[in-house]
Computed example of a mutant assay.
Amino acid sequence: MDFFAKIGLHVTKSKSFSARTLDANALKSFAHPLRLRIYELLDERGPATATGLAGLLGENTGATSYHLRELARHGMIEVATGMGRGKEKYWRVVPGGFTYGEPPSDAEAASALEVLLDDLVRQRGTELARWREGASRAPAEWVEASGFGRRSLRLTAEETAELRDQVLEVLERYRTVSDHREPEPAEGRDQPTGHVVIHFDVLPLGALPEDDPA
């Protein structure tokens, strides 16, 4: 997902980052197609109501309200204060992000984690394809600021972990900047902000057995 979080979700043993780790119950609750999509929409588009999300998803408001409450129960989202009228609630992604943490021993939670990781791969493919297909129509300054990257290196496991943590520290710095940025009308900004997604993977493919079917 957002998942340095979407975006931030990452699987790491490092304790130097402020994102909280989802427990087994949160993993099992989050691994639901509609909740994943609701979280994705809130992350991409910003605060929204159950009614607005229902319209985007083709669901009824009762269903989106229920799933919003479930996401909130596990600290994934929260009510956006200062928005809405009367009993109308706008929901937003909780700042700070979260991690999946270590593979859980609970079999049901472990299965949920597999679902979440598969969805993360799906989302990344969708976002990469979306940008590749639409970049020619984006403002020039954003195209110039974007980038695709791939590196193939020969490293030890220790060097790989060090590289991962150093990159995550840079991402954490900019996530903090993003989380503390107050919303303001586009016309009031000297430099308008936009929804920026960063994909970062560390894949020690050389460590896989030679007969791995992948």
Rank of each mutant, 00 (worst) to 15 (best):
A109P: 09
A109R: 15
A109I: 10
A109N: 15
A109H: 13
A110E: 09
A110R: 15
A110N: 13
A110M: 10
S111L: 12
S111D: 14
S111N: 14
A112D: 13
L113F: 01
L113R: 15
E114H: 11
E114T: 12
E114R: 14
E114W: 04
L116W: 06
L116F: 03
L117S: 10
L117R: 14
L117K: 13
L117W: 02
D118T: 09
D118L: 14
D119S: 10
D119R: 15
D119W: 11
L120C: 12
L120R: 15
L120N: 15
L120M: 14
L120A: 14
V121M: 02
V121L: 06
V121N: 00
V121C: 01
R122Q: 11
R122M: 07
Q123T: 06
R124S: 07
R124M: 06
G125D: 09
T126S: 05
T126K: 12
T126A: 11
E127N: 12
E127P: 00
E127V: 12
L128Q: 09
L128D: 01
L128E: 04
W131Q: 07
W131V: 00
W131L: 01
W131M: 04
R132C: 01
E133R: 10
E133P: 00
G134A: 13
G134N: 11
A135H: 12
A135W: 04
S136Y: 04
S136K: 05
S136P: 00
R137C: 02
R137M: 05
R137D: 12
R137T: 09
A138G: 00
A138W: 13
A138E: 14
A138K: 11
A138V: 07
P139F: 10
P139N: 07
P139C: 02
P139R: 08
A140G: 03
A140D: 10
A140T: 06
A140E: 14
A140M: 12
A140P: 01
E141H: 14
E141Q: 15
E141M: 09
E141D: 14
E141V: 08
W142L: 07
W142C: 00
W142I: 04
V143H: 07
V143T: 06
V143M: 11
E144I: 08
A145L: 07
A145N: 04
S146K: 14
S146A: 15
S146D: 04
S146V: 06
S146C: 10
G147F: 00
G147S: 08
G147I: 01
G147E: 11
G147M: 08
G147A: 10
F148A: 13
F148H: 09
F148G: 09
G149S: 05
G149A: 08
R150N: 08
R150F: 05
R151P: 09
R151W: 05
R151K: 05
S152G: 02
S152F: 11
S152Y: 07
S152D: 08
S152R: 05
L153W: 04
L153F: 07
R154W: 02
R154S: 12
L155K: 02
L155E: 03
L155F: 00
L155M: 10
T156F: 04
T156M: 02
A157C: 02
A157K: 12
A157M: 07
A157D: 11
E158C: 06
E158T: 15
E158V: 15
